[in-house]
């Protein structure tokens, strides 16, 4: 069998599902990332209340508070993403399996995406109750779309940086200092997109260019991360 034929034979979907199921099962057995991220988000809202000295925020301030909080919460999840593999050498067992190694990237990215979505399901309502002045309902569909695009950006960059950092000596330092600057373009677009949605009489949909920018970011970094991920695993 030629190399290409064998490669095609090793479709990434099946192992991706197996790896993803395992990650979700692990998070259910020993919930670590999601509760920590939720708690962190709500605590940060409280901190913003006192730090800003304001009872209510709206518009671009609200967008900034919400998105920066989600970004920082994501850092916690990214830091934990490969810990289960790292402990007890689980990495080796996965690497020796006859699977396309990018399945690991797809599985970890999807897991992070699901974690972030779950966190937001709690954190965004909490934000609306605790801090947001105007009613969130009019911009909700657009907010969901924007946050989904943000989660996509966080999970593709996050899965790559997590894999990059896990076998360095200072994972907990490398993850935030590399991830945060990398996410600036996504934050710019997302914050601009969310600002009118969280304003008192804002539009129900953001300017298309911000969503396009987010989409472009997702596409570029998703594909790039997918292309270079293999190199982080071969020794």
């Amino acid at each position: 069998m030629s190399r290409d034929a064998a490669r095609r034979d090793a479709k990434p979907m099946r192992p991706t599902m197996a790896l993803l199921r395992k990650d979700l099962l692990l998070e259910r057995r020993a919930p670590e990332s999601i509760p920590a991220m939720v708690l962190f988000s709500i605590t940060t809202f409280v901190l913003f209340h006192f730090g800003l000295g304001r009872d209510e925020v709206d518009g671009s301030l609200a967008a900034g508070v919400l998105l920066v909080t989600i970004l920082f919460a994501a850092i916690l999840g990214i830091n934990r993403l490969f810990v289960a593999e790292h402990e007890e050498g689980g990495f080796d067992a996965v690497l020796m399996a006859p699977i396309d190694r990018t399945a690991l990237f797809l599985a970890k990215g999807t897991a992070l995406f699901l974690f972030l979505t779950l966190v937001e399901v709690v954190a965004v309502p909490a934000f609306a109750i605790l801090l947001l002045g105007p009613s969130p309902w009019h911009g909700l569909p657009a907010l969901i779309v924007t946050l989904a695009l943000v989660n996509l950006a966080l999970s593709s960059v996050g899965a790559l940086v997590a894999a990059l950092a896990i076998r360095t000596r200072s994972r907990d330092l490398i993850v935030p200092i590399v991830t945060l600057p990398l996410l600036v373009p996504a934050l710019i677009a997302a914050a601009r997109a969310c600002a009118p949605l969280l304003a008192a009489h804002g539009d129900a949909w953001p300017a298309a260019k911000w969503l396009l920018m987010l989409g472009l970011y997702d596409l570029v970094f998703g594909l790039l991360a997918y292309a270079v991920f293999d190199f982080l695993l071969e020794d």
């Binding site: 990398l182 373009p185 710019i188 920018m213 472009l216 970011y217 970094f221 270079v228």
Partner: peptide, 15 residues
């Protein structure tokens, strides 16, 4: 990754 980031970031900031 960072090399691809440079033009993308410039675009976003410019916008």
């Amino acid at each position: 990754i960072a090399g691809a980031f440079v033009p993308l970031n410039f675009m976003a900031v410019r916008m």
